[in-house]
Design a protein around this nucleic acid. Structure first.
Length: 151
DNA sequence: GCCAACGTTGGC
DNA sequence: GCCAACGTTGGC
C-alpha cells in the first residue's frame, strides 16, 4: 500500500468538509514538487488529511485516491484565485487527484506528537522548514501512525 | 503578528 | 546561469 500526506487549512477545507462531500478534487496545488507527487498517485492509495494553520496542527483523518491524473480545473478559470494564465487546455500545467473520505480520526494526531515519534528522515512533514503540501509517507511510518489511533 | 525557510521571478 | 528581491507557507 502506498501512503501520502496532504495538507489543507481546516478553515478553508477540513476533514469535516470532506466527510460531508464524500469526494473532492484536491485543487489549487501550485508547487511543482507537490504536483509531481500528485502525478504519482494511483487509485486506492491512502492519504493522511493534515490540518495546517490550525491549533494544534496535525493529522485529522484518512482519505483514499479515487481518481488520479485530473487536470486541475481551477488553472483554466480566470475567476479563480488559482488561475494560471501560463497554462492552457492544450498543455495543462497542473494535475491533481480526486480523493474520497475514508475516516475521521477520533482525536487529531498533533504535529508535536509526530515530531516526538518520527525523525525528519522518516517523515518529511517534521523536517525543519518543511512547507510541502503533498508528500509521500513510508509504509512503516504510515502503519505506526494508524496504530496511534488504534486502526 | 512574527519570522524562518523556501520557491519563484526577473534583471543582468 | 547567477542571485537579489519578493512572495508564500505555516508553526509559534
Amino acid at each position: 500500500m502506498r501512503y501520502w500526506l496532504m495538507k489543507s487549512e481546516p478553515e478553508v477545507y477540513g476533514i469535516a468538509d470532506l466527510e460531508r462531500d464524500r469526494k473532492t478534487i484536491w485543487d489549487g496545488i501550485r508547487n511543482y514538487q507537490a504536483r509531481n507527487f500528485l502525478r504519482e498517485m494511483q487509485v486506492g492509495d491512502l492519504a493522511f488529511f493534515y490540518h495546517s494553520q490550525s491549533s494544534p496542527p496535525g493529522i485529522a483523518g484518512l482519505m483514499r485516491v479515487a481518481q488520479p491524473g485530473i487536470d486541475d480545473p481551477t488553472q483554466f478559470d480566470a475567476q479563480s484565485q488559482y488561475y494560471d494564465p501560463k497554462s492552457s487546455l492544450d498543455s495543462p500545467r497542473w494535475q491533481t487527484v480526486r480523493v474520497e473520505f475514508v475516516r475521521s480520526f477520533p482525536a487529531l494526531i498533533p504535529l508535536e506528537q509526530l515530531r516526538q515519534t518520527f525523525s525528519a528522515e522518516e517523515l518529511l512533514l517534521v523536517r525543519r522548514g518543511n512547507r510541502l503540501s503533498v508528500m509521500p509517507v513510508p509504509e512503516d511510518v504510515a502503519e505506526k501512525i494508524l496504530a496511534m489511533v488504534g486502526q
